[in-house]
Computed example of a mutant assay.
Amino acid sequence: MQHICVGSSGYYLKEDTLVFTATMGGRTIATVEISLKDFSIIQCRAFANGVCEYAEQIAGIINANKKMIAERTESRRVSA
């Protein structure tokens, strides 16, 4: 259990955001919310809403994959 407010605050209901978990070795290390407008990280939080020690690495992965995220997001919008 991640102990964050994604569920209770309804972040996952926002139309222009993507919320996912980042895992390492099968263990959840962070919950990440990104903007689907510019693919920037809105928040990256660790257990109990703490600061994620891997935030820079997660940001690097997101930045390296912005094009793929955009393509997949657009294809989902078209097919919906």
Rank of each mutant, 00 (worst) to 15 (best):
N65Y: 02
K37V: 15
G25M: 03
V32C: 12
A22C: 02
G60L: 03
N63H: 06
L36A: 04
H3C: 04
I4L: 13
R27E: 03
Y12R: 09
S75A: 13
G60T: 11
F47N: 15
Q43V: 11
D16H: 12
G7C: 11
E74G: 02
M24K: 13
E71S: 12
A70I: 06
N65L: 02
E15H: 10
L18C: 07
G10M: 12
S75F: 05
F20L: 10
K14C: 09
L18K: 12
S79T: 10
S8F: 02
N65W: 05
M68K: 13
I41F: 03
R72G: 13
T73R: 07
T31G: 13
T23E: 10
V51E: 09
C44I: 06
E53A: 09
Y54D: 15
D38P: 01
Q43G: 01
K14A: 12
C44K: 10
R76Y: 12
I62L: 04
N49R: 07
V78W: 03
A22Y: 00
I29P: 01
V51M: 01
A64L: 05
I61Y: 07
R45E: 13
E74S: 08
G60M: 06
R72W: 03
I58F: 01
C44N: 15
R76M: 14
G7V: 10
K67M: 05
L13W: 08
G25F: 07
A59V: 05
N63W: 00
I29G: 00
N63Y: 03
M1S: 14
R77M: 11
I58L: 02
